[in-house]
Design a binder for these strands. Structure first.
Ligand code: MN
Ligand code: MN
Ligand code: MN
Ligand code: MN
Lengths: 222, 222
DNA sequence: TGTTATTTTTAGACTAATCTAAATTAAATA
DNA sequence: TATTTAATTTAGATTAGTCTAAAAATAACA
């Protein structure tokens, strides 16, 4: 029961696509996120199906089996632990670590993963606020909402993002909108729905509707 | 100018073989250390030659070009830095880290390598006493000799080993023969050439001729 | 030096992962 | 419902890396 680098990437892609949309995942969606062609995806789906990692019927889309989900979560665990390591120990910026983690997530050794986890102090969230699955593959999924749905007066702690492109990460960096920061919505300007945020130290930050959609907050600290 | 996982392993193997024997490396030697067949090696030699990473003429063996050596040293640098990380930061045993480093050495990013180096405090030697090439690929090659060639009364510091199998590493572990330990040769028993070592704290350790061959010492600390 | 043994290379085939182009199935819509 | 459009699958080819078996070159040695 060995999974190749490539198979792992497919499982991870299917996991993320089905988490976002919580339904059957289509061939073309997978092709898009993996930067490959639909024909290649079909070939791989047959292979993964043969290994009982996905449920697949021609033309009907796919979903992960229990085994497939377990493997996907192991990859995601490694990805996020390595991202945490790179930011916290090697002083990389949060916009610089994803591509490296894409490589490191394929290192095969649960022993290494678990020791890294311990070395890092069992972090719950990666640098982008995404939850890190524990040894058993369990994810602590905090209740989060986009600041685009908030009303004036609402408050919370920035806890996650829905967009991981480095241009967006750099935007947040520039705006000083960091994970863990406490913010309150002061007003929403009607004209273009700009969200005006107020931070704990009185700073005012204007966020466009487009950006607000991708910023997630949590009500209270756990 | 991109080198694949496989190409990197060939370059590394050729480097190590030519360091040991300091001459042309043969097809069969490479096949042996890489656990592959001579025919596969020939194919790869042609490919590496086409990329100017080795000098190769049919039936005459190979040697690395300057470029090939540079790449090999980068892989070795990464291998040894990761081994150091695994032992010093994640508390792995020195007999457990080689296979993991075989995977980690192929992670592509000089930025990561250099930051890891810094994080570790720019170590000069890996857990097995092998020198870690610096950023420019320079190796500090200390003068070492096998304790099998010593006479009674000679002394030095255990600084390296010539055999990296985990069974040998575990043997040294059991004998409490660690890198950095100061030892003196008390006597060499004529019958079977057993080397009797005396450590700084008065401990006596008997080492067989077979094992003595693989243990390297240095005269003085630098 | 001629013959045998060893090493190395070639020839041809295989697998994993990919692609393009064509065929098929399903979905959308007139 | 019939027709058009979009999504998906198949067919056939390609590339990297590997293999076995056979041929060719070199080395060993009688
Ligand atoms: Mn990431
Ligand atoms: Mn992340
Ligand atoms: Mn090693
Ligand atoms: Mn080592």
């Amino acid at each position: 029961m060995d999974t190749s680098f490539t198979e792992e990437n497919y499982l991870k892609a299917i996991y993320h696509l089905s988490a976002d949309e919580s339904k059957q995942v289509n061939t073309n969606q997978i092709a898009t996120v993996l930067n490959t062609k639909a024909a290649s995806v079909t070939d791989m789906l047959k292979k993964l199906s043969g290994k009982n990692l996905i449920n697949y019927e021609r033309y009907q889309g796919v979903e992960l089996t229990g085994l497939g989900k377990t493997i996907a979560l192991k990859i995601i665990r490694k990805h996020r632990l390595w991202e945490y390591f790179l930011v916290e120990k090697l002083a990389f910026g949060w916009d610089e670590v994803h591509d490296l983690a894409e490589q490191l997530e394929h290192i095969q050794s649960t022993e290494l993963t678990d020791r890294l986890d311990e070395f890092l102090g069992f972090p719950k969230y990666d640098p982008h606020g995404d939850p890190i699955p524990d040894q058993s593959g369990t994810i602590k999924c905090a209740e989060m909402k986009s600041i685009a749905v908030l009303k004036a007066g609402n408050a919370g702690i920035i806890s996650g993002i829905k967009e991981h492109s480095s241009s967006f990460l750099q935007y947040l960096e520039k705006m000083d909108l960091k994970i863990g920061k406490k913010i309150a919505v002061e007003e929403i300007i009607p004209f273009d729905e700009t969200v005006v945020l107020r931070t704990e130290n009185g700073e005012k930050i204007n966020v466009s509707k487009a950006a607000a959609k991708y910023i997630l907050i949590q009500d209270e600290q756990l």
